[in-house]
Nucleic acid binder design. Structure first.
Length: 552
RNA sequence: UGGGGCGUCGCCAAGUGGCAAGGCAGCGGGUUUUGAUCCCGCCAUUCGGAGGUUCGAAUCCUCCCGCCCCAGCCA
C-alpha cells in the first residue's frame, strides 16, 4: 500500500488480514443492481472497492446483483459499465452476474432444506408480517415451519417449476423467530416471480433474495472483503449464518462503511427519478444531476471525482460532506489541466480608435504550464468586451475599464478609455479607447500602469455560442430531508445565454473538452450538442470569487 | 421502550495509553497580464457529557446524552 494514503479502518483491517495470513490476496467487488443510473454515492463505493484492490495489488470484480428482474434492465447494465470505465477503472475478468449463479444458488437452497434449516412457507405477505413481530416483541413461528424435508423439497422443486403463483409461497431459512435482530426471524430466501429476466429469460420462476444471494456470490467469486454500506450491518449475522451453513468454496468477510452524502444534493433513486419524470431537469445526465453521467456532462473530470472520494475519507460515521469540497477538487484538477481561452458573456463593442492595422498575438494557453503552448489571436480595431468590465466612472476598487483609465487586454495591448455612446435609455452601446502601448507585453512608456486585465474577442472573428450557466439545483443544504422537492428547488439553477461570443478556436473544440474561460470559470463543450457551427458550452464551475464589490 | 451502529474544529477526517495530522470552508498578508492560481500566516489546552483507572486518557472502565439504521416476498 502506498505510504501517502491516509489510513482508514478498511485499509487497516485488510492489512491486518494480510499480516495475519487470513487472506493471501485481496479480492473486492462493486455489486450494483442494474435498476438505475450510478450517482456520486456509487462513485464513492467504486473508488473504495477498486481503490482497495489497486492499493493491495488485488483484483476487483464488477458484478451485477440482478436478483430482481422486475426492476432491472439492460439499459442500466450498459450505462453502469460505461460509468465505471469513465471513472477510470477496469474490472478483473468478465462482467459477473448474480443471475449466472442461479443454478448453484438453487442447489444450495436444496442443501439448506436437506439440513432442515430452510422451509417452504405458505403465509401471505400480510400474514408473514403479522408473524414477524415488532421491534420490541418477538415473532411467532410460521405454521409451516415444521414441514418435513421431503415435503419442503417437493414444494420448492415445484416452486421452481412454476406451479404456484406470485406470492403464494416462499422459501425461508429456519433460524429464530424470537431474535432481537429482525433479519434473523426466518428470513426469506426465495420468492416466486413469474417475470422474465434480462439475462436468463424465462428460465426461472423463482428468484433469490439479496440476503440469500449476496454472500454466496461473494463466496463463488472468492471475494475476500465484501464491502457495503452501514444499513447492511444488521444483515451480517445472516450473511455469516448462510456462509457457515452452506458448503461454499470460500469464506468472504463483510465490512460496512458509511455511505457518502453531499450537501445540496439528493441521491435517493426515487427523488432522482422524480426530477427526471417531472421534467425539472432534462434527463438523467442533465449537468445539474449528481449522476455520474450528469457530472460528466457538466465537465467534472473523473480524476477530480476520484480525488474527492479519497479526500473525504472512509469511515463509519454518518455525515454530510460539504459539496464545496467536491467543487474544490474539480477546480484543482481543472486549474492544472484546462487550457485557457476567452469568451465574452455580455458583449459590448469596444473601438480601438488608434489601431490602424490588426495585430497578431501569440497568447499562452496556460499561465503556468508552457507545455500547453500558445494560440494565435488577432487584435482588431473593433472588439467585444464584457459589459460588466466597463463603467463610465467608478471608485478605485473597480479594476476594470473606466473612462480616462487603463486596463490591459488579455495577451495584448494596454488601452485607455476615452468615451462611450449611449442609447436613448442611457444604456452604453459602444466604448472608444486608444491603445497606449503598441507591443504586446509592454508597459506604457509614461509609467502609468493599467488597473487590471480584461478579456475580449475580436468582433471580426468571434463566433456566437450558447453558454449554459448552472447553479445548485437546490436552495437548501439538505434537500433530501424535504418531501416536497419543488419547495426546495433553486429556480435559477440553469441560465441559458444565447448571445455569448467566443474566440474562433473554441468553435472547433472536441465534445467534452474543458476550457477555462478566463476570469469566468471552467466550461465544457457539450458532449452531445456542441458543434463547430453551433457551439454549446456548459459551465462546469465558476472561478473562486473572493471579491465582492463594496459598492454593488 | 428490542437489536445494531456512530459521536475528534463550521464540514469531512487521522489518531487505538505518551501529551490533538491533513483537507474543505473562513480570516489576515505577499506574488500575479485571470479580483483565478500560487505562496506565507491564523484557525480544537481539547476530543458528546459526568465520574473512575493510570505517572499519563480522544484512546481503558462505568453511567448518562444525542444522532443514524432495522418490522419489503427491495437492494
Amino acid at each position: 500500500m502506498s505510504a501517502e494514503l491516509r489510513s482508514n479502518f478498511l485499509r487497516t483491517q485488510i492489512q491486518d488480514d494480510l499480516d495475519a495470513g487470513r487472506v493471501s490476496a485481496v479480492v473486492t467487488r462493486f455489486p450494483p443492481e442494474p435498476n438505475g443510473f450510478l450517482h456520486i454515492g456509487h462513485a464513492k463505493s467504486i473508488t473504495v472497492n477498486f481503490g482497495l484492490a489497486q492499493q493491495f495489488g488485488g483484483q476487483c470484480h464488477l458484478r451485477f446483483d440482478d436478483t430482481n428482474p422486475e426492476k432491472e434492465s439492460q439499459e442500466f447494465i450498459d450505462s453502469i459499465q460505461e460509468d465505471v470505465r469513465w471513472l477510470g477503472y477496469e474490472w478483473h475478468g468478465e462482467v459477473r452476474y448474480a443471475s449466472a449463479y442461479f443454478e448453484q444458488l438453487y442447489h444450495w437452497a436444496l442443501h439448506l432444506i436437506d439440513q432442515g434449516v430452510a422451509y417452504v412457507c405458505d403465509l401471505s405477505p400480510e400474514e408473514a408480517r403479522a408473524h414477524r413481530g415488532t421491534l420490541t416483541e418477538p415473532g411467532q413461528d410460521s405454521p409451516y415451519r415444521a414441514r418435513s424435508v421431503s415435503e419442503n423439497r417437493d414444494l420448492f422443486v415445484r416452486m421452481r417449476a412454476g406451479e404456484f403463483s406470485d406470492g403464494e409461497r416462499v422459501l425461508r431459512a429456519k433460524i429464530d423467530m424470537a431474535s432481537p435482530n429482525i433479519n434473523l426471524r426466518d428470513p426469506i430466501l426465495y420468492r416466486i416471480r413469474h417475470a422474465d429476466h434480462h439475462q436468463t429469460g424465462n428460465e426461472w420462476r423463482i428468484y433469490p433474495t439479496y440476503d440469500f444471494a449476496h454472500g454466496q456470490e461473494d463466496a463463488i467469486e472468492g471475494i475476500t472483503h465484501s464491502i457495503c454500506t452501514l444499513e447492511f450491518e444488521d444483515h451480517r449475522p445472516l450473511y455469516d449464518w448462510l456462509i457457515a451453513n452452506l458448503p461454499v468454496p470460500h469464506q468472504p468477510r463483510q465490512i460496512e462503511f458509511a455511505r457518502l452524502n453531499t450537501s445540496y444534493t439528493v441521491t435517493s433513486k426515487r427523488k432522482l427519478k422524480q426530477l427526471v419524470d417531472e421534467a425539472i431537469v432534462e434527463g438523467w445526465d442533465d449537468p445539474r444531476m449528481p449522476t455520474i453521467s450528469g457530472l460528466r456532462r457538466r465537465g467534472y473530470p473523473a480524476a477530480a471525482i476520484r480525488h474527492f472520494c479519497e479526500e473525504v475519507g472512509t469511515s463509519r460515521s454518518d455525515g454530510i460532506v460539504d459539496v464545496a469540497m467536491l467543487e474544490s477538487a474539480v477546480r484543482d484538477e481543472l486549474n492544472r489541466h484546462a487550457p485557457r481561452a476567452m469568451c465574452v458573456m455580455r458583449p459590448l463593442r469596444l473601438i480601438l480608435t488608434n489601431l490602424t492595422e490588426p495585430l497578431e498575438l501569440q497568447v499562452p494557453n496556460h499561465p503556468a504550464d508552457p507545455s500547453f503552448g500558445h494560440r494565435e489571436l488577432i487584435l482588431t480595431r473593433e472588439l467585444l468586451i464584457d459589459a460588466e468590465d466597463f463603467r463610465e466612472d467608478a471608485n478605485k476598487h473597480f479594476k476594470r475599464l473606466v473612462i480616462g483609465k487603463r486596463v490591459r487586454l488579455r495577451g495584448g495591448l494596454v488601452i485607455e478609455a476615452e468615451s462611450c455612446d449611449k442609447d436613448g435609455d442611457g444604456r452604453i452601446q459602444c466604448v472608444y479607447a486608444q491603445c497606449v502601448t503598441s507591443v504586446p507585453g509592454e508597459d506604457p512608456e509614461d509609467g502609468v500602469k493599467p488597473k487590471g486585465v480584461i478579456h475580449w474577442v475580436s468582433a471580426d472573428h468571434a463566433v456566437p455560442a450558447t453558454i449554459r450557466q448552472y447553479d445548485r439545483l437546490f436552495a437548501v443544504p439538505d434537500p433530501g430531508k424535504s418531501e416536497d422537492l419543488g419547495a426546495v428547488l433553486n429556480e435559477n439553477s440553469l441560465t441559458t445565454n444565447a448571445s455569448a461570443m467566443i474566440e474562433p478556436g473554441l468553435a472547433n473544440a472536441a465534445p467534452e473538452a474543458v476550457f477555462q474561460f478566463e476570469r469566468e470559470g471552467y466550461f465544457v463543450a457539450d458532449r452531445y450538442e456542441h458543434q463547430s457551427q453551433r457551439p454549446v458550452f456548459n459551465m462546469t464551475i465558476g472561478l473562486r470569487d473572493t471579491w465582492s464589490d463594496p459598492n454593488g
